[in-house]
Design a protein around this nucleic acid. Sequence first.
DNA 1: TCAAATTAAATCGTACACGATTAATTCAAA
DNA 2: TTTGAATTAATCGTGTACGATTTAATTTGA
Lengths: 156, 156
Amino acid sequence: MTKKKPDEFQGYELDDHVCFAIYKANHAFNRFYKPVMKELGITYPQYITLLALFKKDHQRVSELGECLFLESNTLTPLLKRLEEMGYISRTRSQEDERQVIVSLSETGRGLSDGIIDIQQCAFSHLDTPAETIRQLVEQLNEVQAHMIKAKEKVSG
Amino acid sequence: MTKKKPDEFQGYELDDHVCFAIYKANHAFNRFYKPVMKELGITYPQYITLLALFKKDHQRVSELGECLFLESNTLTPLLKRLEEMGYISRTRSQEDERQVIVSLSETGRGLSDGIIDIQQCAFSHLDTPAETIRQLVEQLNEVQAHMIKAKEKVSG
DNA sequence: TCAAATTAAATCGTACACGATTAATTCAAA
DNA sequence: TTTGAATTAATCGTGTACGATTTAATTTGA
C-alpha cells in the first residue's frame, strides 16, 4: 500500500498545476472579456467566433469549427444568435446544399473597431514584454499539441 | 481613418494569441480528461472539485468557490450530483445554519487512486521538463493576476 | 442508374458558467 | 430587543460545450 491517504493527497504536482493554471487563466480572460463584450451586445464565445470571421470571412460552419475547436452542435445555436442580432448571415452553399456559409454583415464588420480598442486595453494590462508573451504562447501551443496526442492515445 | 478594414484585421496579435492559446490549451485538457473521467463516472469540473476536497476536506460551499473561482449558482447543482452519486455529503453547519459543509464520503475518497493514475498519465504525455512546466505555471498565474486586476479597473 | 456509404449541419439531452434574484439565517445598531 | 443590514446558499434564465442521433444532400460503386 504505497498510495497516499486523501488527507495527504497532492496529486502529481506539475500536471495538476498546469491544468489548473490554464483553467484559472482561461477563467480570468473570460471574466475580463464578458462584461466589456456585453457592452457590444455579444458573449465571449461569440467574440472568439467573430475574430475568426474577421480573419477569414465566408467560412463554412465546419471550417469555423476547425479553427475554434467546436462542432455544429455548439456553433449552430451560437451562429443563429449572431444572425438574429444581425452581425452575420447564414446561407446554404449553391454548389453543395449541405454546407452553410457564414458571412459578416456590414454591422458585424463594424464591431471590429470596438473590439480593437478592447484588445488594446487587455494587452496593455498584461504589462508583459512582447517576447515573453510570444514564448508563453509557443509553450501553450506545445502543451495543447501534447494533450491532443495524449487524448488520441488514451481514448481514441 | 487609421483603422484597418476587416479583411486585413489581425487584432492586437499578442493578446489575441495569448487568450486564444489559453482557450485552446484549456480545451485540450478538457478533451483529454473528459473521456477518462467518464470511466470514473464524473465530469471534468467534478474532478476539479474533488481535487479541491482531496486537498482540504469539509469545506463550505463558498470556500470551495474561492479556490475554484465558482459561485453557488454553479457549485450547488454540481455538488448535488456528486452527492447523488454518493461521493460527497452536504450538511448544514451546526453553528451557522446558512453554511453548507461539503465532505468526502468513503467512496469519494476511493476515487483518488484512479485519479492519481490518470494524472500520472497526463503528466507523462506532456513530455516536458519539470522546470519548464514550473515556469509556465508561474507565467500563467501572472497573466491571470494581471487580467483579474484589469477586470477590476475596467468593469469593477 | 440507383441503393449504400459518406458528409454537413441540425437537433436533443445533460452539464456547466454566470448575472440577477430570492430565501433563510445571523449580526448589529438604535 | 427588534428592525434593518449583511451573509450564505439556492434558484432562475440564458448561453455555451459536447456525445449521440437525425436529417438532408452528395458521392460511390455495383
